[in-house]
Write a protein that binds this DNA or RNA. Sequence first.
RNA 1: GCUCCUGUAGCUCAGAGGUAGAGCACUCCCUUGGUAAGGGAGAGGUCGUCGGUUCAAUUCCGACCAGGAGCUCCA
Length: 650
Amino acid sequence: MHIILPDGKQLDLPQGATALDVARQISERLAGDAVAATANGELTDLMTPLSDGARLSLITKKNPGDAAALFRHSLGHVMSQAVGEFYRAKGYGDDQIKRGVGPAIENGWYQDFDLPEPLSEDDLPEIERLMRDIIGRKLEFSRREVSRAEALDVFAHDPYKAELIEGLPEGEAVTLYTQGDYTDLCRGPHFPNTGRLPTAFKLMSTSGAYWRGNENNPILQRIYGVAFATQKELEDYLNLLEEAKRRDHRRLGKELELFFTSDVIGPGLPIWLPSGATIRRELERFIVDVELKNGYQHVYSPALAKSELYKISGHWDHYQEDMFPIMYLDQEELVLRPMNCPHHIQIYAHKPHSYRELPLKIAELGTMYRYEQSGQLTGLSRVRSMTLNDAHIFCRPDQIQEEFKAVVRMIQEVYEVLGFEHYSYRLSLRDPGDTEKYYQDDQMWDTAEAQLREALADLGVDYYESPGDAAFYGPKLDVQVRSALGKDETISTAQLDFLLPQKFDLEYVAEDGSRQRPVMIHRGVISTMERMTAFLIENTAGNFPFWLAPRQVMLIPIADRHNEYAEQLRAELVAAGLRAEVDTGSDRMNAKVRDAELKKIPVMLIVGDKEQEAQAVSVRERTPEGHQERKGVAFADLKAELLDRYQNRR
RNA sequence: GCUCCUGUAGCUCAGAGGUAGAGCACUCCCUUGGUAAGGGAGAGGUCGUCGGUUCAAUUCCGACCAGGAGCUCCA
């Protein structure tokens, strides 16, 4: 057989040759430096037989980052071995350690274990030490193909491995990888030798994980590790995590007194403190302004409804487990609403509509209650009471595309103000195989999906398709915004719905006097107030733009005799609609500046003798780089400037 | 909901089987200072809740509640 090298050169090799054989044929030195290879573009290791005619490119220890998935996976095996040694030292037998799966993941790997006694995070440093020891032993990874029977024999003590082996396709060879005295069932590929593995790794955490991800299965202990080709990359990653901690909305929410949850009020039921409420109010005013400009009509509807409403809508069948339990009283059964759409449908249905009135756009900052599992609750981003920037567009079938495009344009308009520059469109489609989740009507789905594709093509936006992510009633467009830390978060959604109008028997009178069925578009632009606020906190690290900043201006008198002047300016700013305070404390001015910085107040106005005399202020304001100072600015000018920023939402 | 971890003053955290401590914040006094901490004094805690072990529990054990890391779920 032969293989082809990157420069086009062909090498002749005996059948069953490996990448290591190739490296040896080129030079012994290369054989010593190689850590992995790609064959026809796929990562492979040095121990796996190559296929005839493969295009082979060797990866050396100089650029091991190209083989990150490999060394992460191999480190997983090393960790697995280390955990075995750890428990052996405690007096347990090897057959008491059972192992689930252990794949490489983004930035690292994890490995699941069933252990004779639980592992604590305090044990991680010792396991890490054992790992470094194993790396130091320069153990060779060897690959072996065996029969199923033989494999089952090797893992006789381990029911998880046995289950995996039995799940492998009949007739396919089972591969085992061994380093030192440790053997694992593994498809590979792996590094050739533990000694060539990077040492820039760290064990991060332990957690529980169900065997095969099914909550009816036993729970295993999982250890997560991260690994990089270089120490620098590892440090960068750890710094990123630190930065994420600093920006965590739960931490900043507490520090800046934005919100809290109370044991007595209940988990997942956040309380908005005055500063957090200010941010929310600004967001709400903003989105309502935009919606009114775009022809939406705002309504209010109650958070409770008869359960009948949800039985008609179908939520009862599809969503009940996420709803709070039913309340029985007198002859009624009431539920807390988990969605606003059925209410808005009732608003549509309360009087007949002409085709001339459509599209009808009903909007509401609707508060909803969902029973999220307790382990799922997180700060403001996963809660049980939430207020959605919700709207439902009732339109004629011929208006679908125009309306859908209008929603996308509105999303773009809103993102510009919020400063979201990096976002992507995901067209979420049904999985036709999943008859359980999706309403069954092939034609409905085909039409709906085609309409959305066409509208997107018209808008000229890039998007990707994601089967299996649609709502039960129809396909949707999700918009995912990239946060400052590079994480994608679904912020906006627009969903096409032919089903609910049918369930509620909605109609309009067409031009020819006939009764026709309208189509609904469910859309949310700035998500729930809770989630958007959490996102903005993390995205800005608490440094909100001026218009959103809960505390916009801090006046800092240099000495007590300037308090009165400062107070006069504050009153003027507040009268103009801005949020301003005076720091009349007995601290020195330096301390007041520091204090205002820590509170992340964007504008400080410092006033002393000079300013008072000139009816001026000294401005210290936040800039992306840090801060800038302007001295002797006429107060009237400054007020106009701040007002302009506020009104134009900057 | 599940596994593991955590729960001490408003916040961040230290602490020991013999009924508690620091820094910041807070209050008061001195200081009236020009762009990230001036000095001093004081007040503040049922050590998450309920049980158990013990002469003695905030410390050990259990249950519960809440939070965290994950898993699972997610219209």
